[in-house]
Each structure stands twice: as structure tokens, then as C-alpha cells.
């Protein structure tokens, strides 16, 4: 069994680029397939979001099957919000069975934010416990309850998310350390708009030597408009959008162009930051700009690995 493309890319020291696809509120995947196809030469792997912001969509595992059929590599996001440990473990096995090798273990936004605010938040295990559980399934061949898997799992590449923009700020590097201890091989960060704060976080991460134990992919999102920036500033959990960034957008004649410029500059700065192993480009509802961003950031063509 070979490692995933994302893992190989990182293991061989290439600056990785992961993309993101948000499944639709329907079972019609034609638009998603179109987006996936358009960025196939520009990203190493695709995150598939799991009912993002608690809005019901096609399942991440369902979409992953489609991507694999297209010859593309999914990174399946799994939140603990909607499934208990029976379902999480079962879904993981199902996804592995048809070829998924990258998993991103997350907590998930509270259901209150979504289109089923009356639903139960499951949270049987938390994101840390789920990450550790997958590691144990893979490395020790045991389920959470102690029962044994009948056959060992293939190599899986396990990811987690970290948010340098959440509080308590001083704790956040230690939270990364805890996720590494639980089994994270790579982490993706929340969207970076406040690069100074990100760099303060990275300084501590390097001081703790964590960048040598895990691949850190910086989260980058191009901002489409001042409205989008304002929305993220006040309505998206755990984000910091500095006022200076909004001022810069206001001063620009072509807001979209400026949004792309900012994303490109952010990637360039991340490439120069010691300990950052790649970028995770999240351009949900603006997927068509991903190739341009990747190209202008000097990350194209993507290495083709055997």
C-alpha cells in the first residue's frame, strides 16, 4: 500500500497545496465535479467539507467516492458533531474500503449555526479523542471499545485543524502539541488574515519544536468583497479579519482582484515562514480562482510523484 499523494508531497519536502470542495445541498454533483476538474493540476488533494457550518449537504464520504472515480485524491473531513462512535468508526471503514487515505478529524460548528438548529449535537467523542481513535484503529487495530479489527487498515494520513486566531492565544501552540500527541501528522489552520498573529503563533510553535513533528498547512481564503470580509469578521466562529485588510480592499478599484492579490501575498509570506509545510486554499463559492492563485504564488506546476 502506498501513501497518499498529499503525504508523499509533504514527506518529500515539497511545499504542498490542498484545495477544498464544499458539497451541494442536493445530490447533483455536476458543479462540484466541474470545480474539482478545473483545479486538478493545481492542488495535491481536496478537502471535502462535512456538513460545513452545520448545513445539510451531500456527505463528505459520498463526494469522496466521486472524486476517486475521477482519479482525484480526497481528504475527507469528519466532524464529531453528527455521529456517535459507532457511526464514526463505521463510516471511516467504509471510506477506507473504497480508497480514502486522508482524514481530517474535526469537532464541527455547533448545529445552532446551520439549517437544522433543532437537531441534537452528538459530541459522543471530541475531536481529540476521535483523532486518537483513528490512530489506534490504524496502528493497533483496535476500536474505541477495545474490540479488534478483523484486518489491519492500510496506511492512513491523519490530519487535524488548529486555530491560531482562537483564545486562549497562549494555549494554542500547546493545543497543537496535544493534537500531535493524539495522532495528527498534518494540520490545517483557520484562514489566515491576521498574518502577524499567525507568525507570533508560529514563533512559539518553532520554540516548542512542533514544526518538526507535524506538517503545518496555512489556511488561505481569497476575499471576494468587502461584504464577505465583514461577514467573516463578525459571523464566522474563530476568525480574525483585521480592519487594515478591509481598508485595503476599500481602497482598491477592483475588489476581487485585490482579494486575489492578498491571497497570493499571504501564500508568499507563508512560503518564507520557517515551519510552514504547505497551504490549504479554501475558496468556497469562488473555486475558479484557485488555479490563478496557485500559479501567481509560484506553486505551479505541481510536482508529479511516483
Amino acid at each position: 500500500m502506498t501513501a497518499s499523494n498529499l503525504q508523499k508531497m509533504l514527506d518529500r519536502g515539497n511545499f504542498a497545496v490542498s484545495g477544498e470542495l464544499g458539497p451541494p445541498k442536493s445530490a447533483d454533483l455536476s458543479t462540484l465535479k466541474h470545480h474539482a476538474h478545473d483545479m486538478r493540476n493545481h492542488v495535491d488533494s481536496y478537502n471535502i467539507t462535512d456538513n460545513q457550518t452545520a448545513i445539510v449537504r451531500t456527505s463528505s464520504i459520498g463526494v469522496a467516492a466521486t472524486l476517486i472515480q475521477m482519479g482525484l485524491e480526497p481528504n475527507v473531513q469528519m466532524t464529531v458533531r453528527d455521529r456517535n462512535r459507532i457511526c464514526l468508526q463505521s463510516d471511516l471503514l467504509g471510506a477506507v474500503s473504497f480508497g480514502v487515505r486522508n482524514f481530517l478529524c474535526l469537532q464541527g460548528d455547533h448545529a445552532k449555526f446551520g439549517n437544522e438548529p433543532g437537531s441534537k449535537n452528538v459530541n459522543d467523542v471530541d475531536s481529540m479523542q476521535w483523532l486518537q481513535a483513528v490512530k489506534k484503529m490504524r496502528d493497533e487495530g483496535i476500536f474505541i471499545g477495545g474490540d479488534k479489527l478483523e484486518h489491519p487498515l492500510p496506511p492512513l494520513f491523519l490530519g487535524a485543524v488548529v486555530n491560531p486566531f482562537a483564545d486562549p492565544f497562549e494555549y494554542r501552540p500547546y493545543r497543537l502539541a496535544k493534537k500531535i500527541a493524539a495522532g495528527a501528522q498534518f494540520v490545517q489552520t483557520q484562514c489566515i488574515f491576521d498574518i502577524d498573529r499567525f507568525e507570533r503563533w508560529m514563533t512559539k510553535v518553532r520554540e516548542l519544536g512542533l514544526h518538526k513533528k507535524v506538517y503545518i498547512l496555512g489556511g488561505v481564503t481569497p476575499i471576494k468583497s468587502i461584504g464577505a470580509a465583514r461577514y467573516m469578521q463578525s459571523n464566522v466562529a474563530g476568525m480574525i479579519v483585521p480592519e487594515a485588510l478591509i481598508t485595503r480592499l476599500k481602497g482598491a478599484q477592483d475588489k476581487k482582484r485585490e482579494g486575489i492579490n492578498i491571497a497570493v501575498e499571504t501564500i508568499q509570506r507563508l512560503r518564507e515562514t520557517e515551519g510552514v509545510a504547505g497551504v490549504h486554499v479554501m475558496a468556497i463559492a469562488w473555486e475558479e480562482v484557485v488555479p490563478e492563485i496557485v500559479e501567481r504564488a509560484g506553486l505551479y506546476p505541481r510536482p508529479v510523484l511516483s
Binding site: 481529540m128 486562549p168 466562529a237
Partner: peptide, 20 residues
């Protein structure tokens, strides 16, 4: 904790308040 977490705060904790 709105998400009944056992291992520390989620990424939605800001300025001492819950994302909810």
C-alpha cells in the same frame, strides 16, 4: 461547553466567550 469537549477549547473560543 456547548460541544461537551473533554480535551480543551475548540477553535470557536474567542475573548472568553463561546462561539454559540
Amino acid at each position: 461547553c456547548s460541544k461537551s469537549m473533554f480535551n480543551g477549547p475548540c477553535g470557536g473560543s474567542q475573548e472568553g466567550k463561546c462561539e454559540v
